[in-house]
Design a protein around this nucleic acid. Sequence first.
DNA 1: AGATTATTGATAATCGTTTTCATTTTCGCA
DNA 2: TGCGAAAATGAAAACGATTATCAATAATCT
Lengths: 148, 148
Amino acid sequence: MRGTSKYDREVLSALECDERFRSCQEIHSRLAEARGGGSRPPSLSTVYRTLHRLARQGEIDTIHAEDGERLYRRCETSPHHHLLCRVCGRVEEIPHAWELRPVLDRVGYQSGFSELGCSLQLSGVCPDCGRSVPTGEDPEERGADAVL
Amino acid sequence: MRGTSKYDREVLSALECDERFRSCQEIHSRLAEARGGGSRPPSLSTVYRTLHRLARQGEIDTIHAEDGERLYRRCETSPHHHLLCRVCGRVEEIPHAWELRPVLDRVGYQSGFSELGCSLQLSGVCPDCGRSVPTGEDPEERGADAVL
DNA sequence: AGATTATTGATAATCGTTTTCATTTTCGCA
DNA sequence: TGCGAAAATGAAAACGATTATCAATAATCT
Ligand SMILES: [Mn+2]
Ligand SMILES: [Mn+2]
Ligand SMILES: [Zn+2]
Ligand SMILES: [Zn+2]
């Protein structure tokens, strides 16, 4: 086969059941820790390459942190959106909102664009973090894109 | 006044009526070119600082390019979404889709999250670019987030 | 096995962004 | 209007995630 790595499974399982998006370096050091002894973990280069491949193949999702850093996460195969906690980074997977379809159709028709796609990024404050953050946090921190 | 720059206006007008998102460096060199002579343009540092401030104040919108680079654009004040051409980067502003409200409400109720916000990123191929790109472009290029 | 090709790891290079800090400008106020 | 404090600026260095390089190693094929 071509374009594979013997670390594919390992990287995927490091991502498995993770409640947050992780950076390449986090994943790399996680792989290093998860070793009893004997075998050596893959190099950082290899983890970067593996994540690239898995992302291109659709095995994992990619987002950009505020500072541009790439973060990865293993996702369900079914279409879904992400709801991120703005405080702790926890991710909730939201079933795909089919209600968006008519909206997209209308947009496509009016704009003349074709091959329409959309990515809906949801954010909020998770139940855990909600307790510690009393009320009306600085509205300027919510970011300009938080339109709703 | 506090936290201003005498270049605020200049940066804003460099962004004015632009059909694409621009990087800080693009804006910086645009400011340099737009000078007949005499006065010197602001330094790159100052442009970075000015863009930060304007973004924090909601005067401009920020997105991340695929490689993480920050791109800026002057936006209307009314809530809206962005439709980007995946080929040439042209931006169409889409009036805010109020149809999303019930979707968000449902998500918020089911997830227990509060302070819900969303950013809807639309993408497609603009009429101009559509002519040159026959059909069914490599579907893997559309990105994992293109869920619709 | 021997030749060929792909993968790996260590290191250097890249490049957008941030930090630092000395210098200049602006502001508050006598 | 002149002086001291505070803010803004520019030049350069530092930073840090990502990418490129390339020699060494491992896998594959005949
Ligand atoms: Mn997901
Ligand atoms: Mn906009
Ligand atoms: Zn949280
Ligand atoms: Zn286009």
